[in-house]
Design a protein around this nucleic acid. Structure first.
Length: 656
DNA sequence: GAAGCGTTATACTAT
DNA sequence: ATAACGCTTC
C-alpha cells in the first residue's frame, strides 16, 4: 500500500470510486475492499480538483479515521491532514465548537458514560419510592439514550417499545427530565447531546444549516448500516449540493443497541431519491475455508441477507475449533500458541484476539501480561475509568469549571472529614457564581474547608495552559491521600506518569480532557504508546473494519454467542449472529475458535446468578455445527497443557 | 447528623 | 474492580 502505483482496483471498486452522478450507496460485504474503495474515492475527488477540505469523511471509530487519513496520505502524496475525517461525534462537536454561539455551547463540557450514570443516580435518589422498583440508573441512561438516538420522545419509546408499566413510565420520564435539568445546570454535554443539538439546530435554523452545508461538496460515510436515525437527520441536512457516498453491509450491522437499524441500507433509495446502489462482492481478505464457515453461520439466519462471500484467494485453510476445561486453560493455550507463532518468526501484529465481552478477556489478558506478550486492548476498560485516575481528573475538572458538580463532589470527598453531605453543602456555595475565582472565594473559610483542599484547585487553574505540569502537580497534591486510599499504590502511581505523557500532546487542560472523553485510551494502549508490533486484543464490536492474519475468537460458547442477555428477543439474537459473523470475517489466513463450557473463578458464580443461562444453552449458534467446516481439536486440553507454564489466575481465585 | 467501615451486589456491545 | 448499602462510631 505504500507504493501508490500498486494501488489497483477491480472493476466494481473502480466504478464506485469514480462514480460522479450523484448520491451512492455501496453495498460491500466483509473483506471486499471497502476501505480501499473509500480511499480511492477520496483520491479520485482530489484528482478531479476538489479541495481536500471540502471532503467530509465520516467513519465509525477514530481508529478508522486515522487509518484512512494515513492511507490517503500515502496515495495522494500530499498532506491529507486537511481532510475532515472523524466520527459523527467528532465532526459535530468540532463544527459546533467552531461557532459555539450558534449552538449555545459556551462553557459546556463533555461527559462520559460513567458521569451520565452518576448524574442519573443523583436524580434517581430523589425519585425512589418503596413500592416501585425504579430501573437502575445505568438502565435509565440507556433508555433515554436510545430514545434520543432513534429520534423519538421518551414517552413514545417507553410506551411503544418497552415493557415498563403505566405506573413506572411517568417516573422514568421524570428521571429523564431531572437528568436533563441537572445536566443543564452543570453545563454538561453528553454524547447524545453532541448529535442531538447539532441535528436539531441544522433542522431548525436554516442559516446555520446553510453555512455548514456550504463547507462540503462530498460526504463519505463508512459503516452506513450502523448509523442511527439521529445521524441520518444530520446527513440529510448536509446533503445537496454535497454528494453522499455511503458504504455499508447489512450483515455487519451490530449497533442496534445504539439505535442503528440495518434496514436503513435497504431503504436508501427511498430516503435519497435518485440514488444509485453499487455492490462490491469479491472477498480479498480471507481464505475460502474461513468464508465457508462465515457463510454457513449467516445462512442459518431466518433473515435473508442474500450474501455468500467468495474468496479471491486460492488458499483454503480450514478454521480450527478447540475446547477447554476452563477459561484459564483456554487463556494459557492462547498465550502458548502466540509464543509458538512468535518463535516461528511471525510478527505480534499479525495476531488479533477477539472477545464478545470486555471481562470475558480477563484470563487472556492476565496471561499476556504474565508472558510479557505486548498487546493493546481495544474496547477494554479506559485508563480514565480507573478510580485513582478519576480522582485526579476530578481535581483538574474542578479547576476548569465550578459548575462541574460531579467533579467537585468526587474531589471534595477525597478529603478526610468530608462525606457526601458536606460535599453537597459546599457545592451549593459554588452555584450562581459566574466566575471561578469568585466561586472559590465562596468556599474559603467554610466549615471543613481548608487552604490545603482549595490550593491544588487554584494551582491547576493557573496551570491550565500547561497540561503535563498541571497533571504532575495534581498528582503530587493527591499522592498522600490516594496512597492511604488504595492498595497497590506503586502500580497505580505509574498511571499518572502515563497521564502526564498523554497530556503533553495538548495545549490546554480542557482540550486534553475532552479528547479522552470522546476517545478513551485503555491502560494497555497508554503503556504501549510507542510500539507498533503488538498483539491486538479487541471486542468484536471494536474489531469491525479491521483484519489480521491470525484471529483467535475466544469464549465462543453457549451464553456468549448469542450473548445470554439477548436471548428471547429474535432481533437481538440475530444481531448476535452478525457479531459472530463480523468476528469470523476479520481473519485473513487462520481462524482459531476456542471455547470453554466450564469456567472457573469468577464465571462459575456469575453463571448461577443469571436466570437466562439455561435459556442461553438452548440457543447456541454452534449447536448444529457441520463438522466438515472446521478442524475440531476437541476434548480436554489437559494432556497438552504444560503446568509449569505460569498460571497467574491462582491469585485471583483466592480473591473470589 | 454525618463520617467511616465492612459486606455485598454487580458485570454486553460504544460514540 | 468498584460502588451501593447498612450498620457502627464519632
Amino acid at each position: 500500500m505504500s507504493d501508490p502505483h500498486n494501488f489497483s482496483l477491480n472493476p466494481q471498486q473502480e466504478q464506485a470510486a469514480t462514480y460522479d452522478e450523484g448520491h451512492v450507496l455501496v453495498l460491500a460485504g466483509a473483506g471486499t475492499g471497502k476501505t480501499r474503495t473509500i480511499i480511492a474515492r477520496a483520491a479520485h475527488l482530489i484528482r478531479q480538483g476538489i479541495d481536500l477540505q471540502r471532503i467530509l469523511l465520516l467513519t465509525f471509530t477514530r481508529r478508522a479515521a486515522r487509518e484512512m487519513t494515513q492511507r490517503l496520505y500515502q496515495i495522494t502524496g500530499e498532506s491529507a491532514q486537511g481532510i475532515m475525517a472523524g466520527t459523527f461525534h467528532h465532526f459535530c462537536l468540532y463544527s459546533m465548537r467552531r461557532m459555539p454561539r450558534h449552538f449555545g455551547l459556551e462553557g459546556a463540557n463533555v461527559i462520559d458514560r460513567d458521569d451520565q450514570v452518576q448524574l442519573m443516580k443523583l436524580v434517581r435518589g430523589t425519585l425512589k419510592q418503596k413500592a416501585l422498583p425504579l430501573p437502575r440508573a445505568a438502565e435509565m441512561v440507556n433508555l433515554r439514550s436510545y430514545a434520543r438516538n432513534t429520534n423519538q420522545s421518551m414517552e413514545d419509546y417507553l410506551k411503544g417499545h418497552t415493557d415498563y408499566d403505566d405506573e413506572l413510565i411517568p417516573l422514568i420520564m421524570r428521571a429523564a427530565q431531572g437528568y436533563d435539568q441537572r445536566k443543564r445546570e452543570n453545563r454538561y454535554l453528553d454524547y447524545d447531546d453532541i448529535l442531538y443539538i447539532f441535528a436539531k439546530t441544522l433542522n431548525e435554523v436554516p442559516e446555520t444549516r446553510d453555512r455548514i452545508r456550504a463547507y462540503y461538496d462530498h460526504i463519505l460515510v463508512d459503516e452506513m448500516q450502523d448509523t442511527n436515525p439521529l445521524q441520518w437527520l444530520i446527513l440529510d441536512a448536509l446533503r445537496d449540493p454535497a454528494h453522499l457516498f455511503c458504504v455499508g453491509d447489512d450483515a455487519q450491522s451490530i449497533y442496534a443497541f445504539r439505535g442503528a437499524d440495518f434496514r436503513n441500507v435497504h431503504s436508501f433509495t427511498q430516503r435519497v431519491p435518485g440514488a444509485t446502489i453499487l455492490r462490491l462482492e469479491r472477498n480479498y481478505r480471507s481464505t475460502q475455508g474461513i468464508l465457508d464457515l462465515s457463510n454457513w453461520l449467516l445462512g442459518r439466519s431466518p433473515l435473508k441477507y442474500g450474501k455468500k462471500l467468495k474468496a479471491h484467494r486460492k488458499a483454503k485453510s480450514m478454521p480450527l475449533l478447540r475446547d477447554f476445561d476452563s477459561d484459564f486453560d483456554e487463556a494459557r493455550w492462547i498465550a502458548k500458541d502466540l509464543l509458538r507463532h512468535r518463535a516461528e518468526g511471525r510478527a505480534w501484529s499479525d495476531h488479533m484476539i477477539i472477545t464478545r465481552t470486555g471481562h470475558g478477556a480477563r484470563a487472556v489478558e492476565s496471561f499476556l501480561v504474565e508472558k510479557k506478550i505486548p498487546y493493546r486492548f481495544v474496547g477494554g476498560i479506559s485508563l480514565f475509568q480507573a478510580a485513582h485516575v478519576k480522582d485526579l481528573l476530578a481535581l483538574l475538572r474542578a479547576a476548569l469549571s465550578h459548575h462541574d458538580e460531579l467533579a467537585w463532589a468526587r474531589y471534595l470527598t477525597l478529603w478526610r472529614g468530608i462525606g457526601d453531605v458536606t460535599a453537597a453543602r459546599l457545592i451549593t456555595k459554588l452555584r450562581g457564581e459566574n466566575d471561578h475565582a469568585a466561586a472559590l472565594q465562596q468556599l474559603t473559610g467554610a466549615p471543613k474547608m481548608s487552604a490545603e483542599i482549595l490550593e491544588p484547585v487554584a494551582q491547576a487553574r493557573r496551570e491550565k495552559a500547561d497540561p503535563p505540569l498541571a497533571v504532575a502537580n495534581a498528582a503530587n497534591a493527591l499522592a498522600k491521600l490516594l496512597e492511604l486510599r488504595y492498595d497497590k499504590w506503586s502500580t497505580r502511581k505509574k498511571d499518572f506518569e502515563l497521564l502526564a505523557r498523554l497530556a503533553a500532546n495538548h495545549r490546554s487542560l480542557s482540550a486534553f480532557i475532552e479528547t479522552y472523553v470522546l476517545d478513551p485510551v485503555t491502560a494497555s494502549d497508554a503503556a504501549q504508546v510507542d510500539r507498533e508490533d503488538i498483539v491486538t486484543l479487541t471486542t468484536a464490536h471494536s474489531a469491525k473494519g479491521t483484519e489480521a492474519s491470525v484471529c483467535y475468537l475466544i469464549r465462543v460458547e453457549p451464553g456468549m454467542y448469542p450473548h445470554f442477555r439477548s436471548v428471547g428477543d429474535p432481533d437481538q439474537e440475530e444481531e448476535e449472529r452478525r457479531i459472530l459473523y463480523v468476528a469470523m470475517t476479520r481473519a485473513q489466513d487462520e481462524l482459531i475458535i476456542t471455547r470453554t463450557y466450564r469456567t472457573g473463578g469468577y464465571h462459575r458464580s456469575a453463571w448461577g446468578g443469571f436466570g437466562k443461562a439455561q435459556a442461553a444453552q438452548a440457543k447456541y449458534f454452534f449447536d448444529d455445527l457441520n463438522d466438515s467446516l472446521l478442524n475440531w481439536n476437541g476434548g480436554s486440553d489437559r494432556t497438552d497443557v504444560d503446568y509449569d507454564f505460569f498460571d497467574p489466575i491462582q491469585s485471583w481465585d483466592r480473591d473470589f
